[in-house]
Simulated scan of single mutants.
Amino acid sequence: MKDCLNVCLIGTGRAGMIHARSYMGNVVGARLLAICDPCEENLKKAQEELHVAYTYADYQVALQNKEIDAVIVVTPTGTHKEIVLAAASAGKHVFCEKPMAISAEECDEMIAACKQHHVKLQVGFMRRYDESFQKAKEVITSGRIGEVTMIKSLTHGPSEPKEWMYDIAKSSGPIGEVNSHDFDTLRWYADSEVKSIHAIGRNFRSCEKKAEYPDYYDTVAVLLEFENGIIGMIDGAQYVQYGYDARAEILGTCGNVLVGSQKNNNVSIATHDKCMHAEVMPSWTKLFKDAYINEARDFIRCIREDDTPRVSGHDGKMALILVREGLRSLLEKRPIRIGE
């Protein structure tokens, strides 16, 4: 295998640029060779920062470049399947951002295509590459807290939803927008598949949207039962305004693990009014900056060593199924057995 693997980023929006920056001098043995985006403005802006060798408006043209070894797909979800199938057919290894696809059937097609053409398929759940979340997994595996009985995970996003997000047929609401990472984290920690799911949600912060979007919810609680008996709990919220929040707790028979913090840094200020003050984490881009770099490094390592990615196509598919079934539970106001 050649000394340096060449990567092409397909999709240069906000999330795409996070991946692009991860490859700018941070991943030994790989470089960002090309970028692709049908939006001329996005492509031009990205190139002004990245200065890559090739720019493309059409991913089909980019895939014809024999110098490219792998692609990073960070485009609208509805385009993932066609791009991944084309990339696999062209012999390019694939990193695909979550959500993996529109349906489980599309996920199966993507998995099959990558297997058929002998290329790697990794899905973007970066919490598995965060140092703190990884440490918790190590503690679980070691047995230091005994048998795991319950796992809790939360994600709260600070930003006001964009107009299209209020239509849960398009966004799935917080279950899809913020909690897909929690579903993956719980499956990873539990080392088991989900048996049943029950979600309850309500709109507390965007009441002015209730008439136009009666099904929209900004806050959700999800209860899960795993096949191995572990209980899972997830809470999600959008537009919390105070900052970005991603934490987890694992309860064992003889101990527990707490993961994450709401703090932006390790500075606390005590003032004359006997109060303690600290800055809150502002965004996911800062909290998981190192995790994104570790994720990119492991993708390249898997290609070089012909290893199985830590987050597989199956993991992407199962997270998508839980998002879909969680939303169905919320709308039908009842527990759902997975696969019913």
Rank of each mutant, 00 (worst) to 15 (best):
M17C: 05
H19F: 09
V28K: 12
L32N: 09
L43P: 03
K45T: 10
T55K: 15
A57N: 02
L63T: 06
I68V: 13
V73S: 01
K81F: 04
S89E: 03
G91T: 08
K92M: 11
F95M: 08
C96K: 02
K98H: 00
M100A: 08
A112L: 15
A113F: 14
K115D: 07
H118A: 14
R128A: 05
Q134T: 06
K135I: 02
I140E: 11
T141K: 12
I145P: 09
E160F: 06
P161F: 11
W164M: 09
Y166D: 03
A169H: 14
S172H: 15
H181G: 06
H181I: 02
E193L: 13
I197E: 01
K210T: 07
D218G: 01
F226Q: 01
I231G: 00
I234C: 10
Y239R: 04
V240I: 11
Q241I: 12
G243P: 05
A248N: 05
G260H: 01
S261L: 05
Q262D: 05
K263G: 03
N265Y: 04
H272F: 08
H272Q: 03
K274M: 14
V280T: 12
M281Y: 02
P282Y: 13
S283R: 14
W284P: 00
K286G: 06
F299V: 00
C302V: 06
S312L: 03
G313I: 02
H314D: 12
R324G: 10
L327Y: 10
L331M: 15
E332P: 14
K333W: 08
I336A: 06
I338A: 07
G339Q: 09
